[in-house]
Nucleic acid binder design. Structure first.
Lengths: 173, 173
DNA sequence: TTCTATAGTGAGTAATCACTTACAAATTTA
DNA sequence: TAAATTTGTAAGTGATTACTCACTATAGAA
């Protein structure tokens, strides 16, 4: 990966996250990256290819975030760590996650399968803890996770640390 | 409001919700509505005006949905009704709500103020029920509400009625 | 050094974009 | 009925879109 190739991806990530995918022209991306527009198509074939490169490069971040949970075996901790997951997003990755959530609505690609392993881990946890409806409890946690992620990524959560403490207290089960 | 004017709004609502606002051209809207493209600008000045008309026309739907909660006085019921609110969205309004959530990401207009009265009603409810942290409890409910709305509007919630019963059971406090 | 492959450019391309204008048809008002 | 206003259309407008093409610069291998 050359320096200019990286510039293109970073510029595209920034613009796609700020303005949206369709609203961002390849011309704008090239200008922000400091390269000729043609270079984008040399490296990424077309605009969609550029988007794919960004998403694929970021897939690792999803796995990195989930890793902490997957190596955990204690049921209670699994649930706790899931619920506070969005707080672990580092500031420099916020833009990437904003793009991910934007794309979930802009394009119609539902990555519900991406949460599948987490869902099963949760179901198993609730089963171990003898909950009556493990599947529904897992669905509940994931639904809340969606809302919490949205709040954090959009920055609408005013009292971050307070809310995090509140959640930890609430989910010590 | 003439018949053609209605056709334009309906076509725009459908396309904006499906493809997104920026990705939908006024040409496409006109074709689906069965009118000349110029008529859109005669009635709505510009593309943004068309979007405004759709949103303004739908603002009433928000109030109608919230009405059930605002006339409720019993704290427990207020919380219960809030949590099951997204289930009350009629099928024919799903497209409108999809557009609302899409726009929340596509444009950067945060309508957090729209939830303000609901938030205050919730805080007051938790206060009356002597909860330790009424503000955080309200924030928790609203965060979950965001996730649940997303799931219902995107249609990713598989077991609707089951999940609804589960929530009612969980939130009988 | 020369050959080859890749990186990079800048000026194009047709198509599409939101929007305008000149004009006609329909409807309302006087 | 005649005048005035509103509704509607078709054919444009310049700007912008994603993308192409002919070309040059660079760097590593033979």
């Amino acid at each position: 990966m050359t320096k200019k190739q990286e510039n293109i991806i970073n510029a595209a990530l920034q613009l796609f996250a700020q303005e949206g995918y369709t609203a961002t022209s390849t011309n704008k991306v090239a200008k922000l990256a400091g390269v000729s527009e043609g270079l984008i198509f040399r490296h990424f074939t077309n605009k969609e290819g550029l988007l794919k490169a960004i998403i694929e490069e970021g897939e690792r971040k999803v796995l990195t975030l989930f890793e902490t949970i997957f190596k955990e075996t204690e049921p209670k901790k699994i649930i706790q760590k899931t619920i506070t997951l969005p707080f672990l997003i580092p500031n420099e990755e916020l833009e990437f996650w904003k793009l991910q959530f934007k794309l979930k609505w802009e394009l119609n690609h539902n990555n519900s399968n991406k949460l599948k392993p987490l869902q099963e881990k949760l179901i198993h946890s609730f089963k171990t803890l003898n909950y009556q409806n493990p599947e529904l409890e897992a669905a509940y946690v994931l639904t809340f996770l969606e809302g919490l992620s949205t709040a954090i990524i959009k920055g609408t959560l005013t009292n971050r640390t307070e809310f995090q403490d509140f959640l930890i207290y609430k989910y010590q089960l």
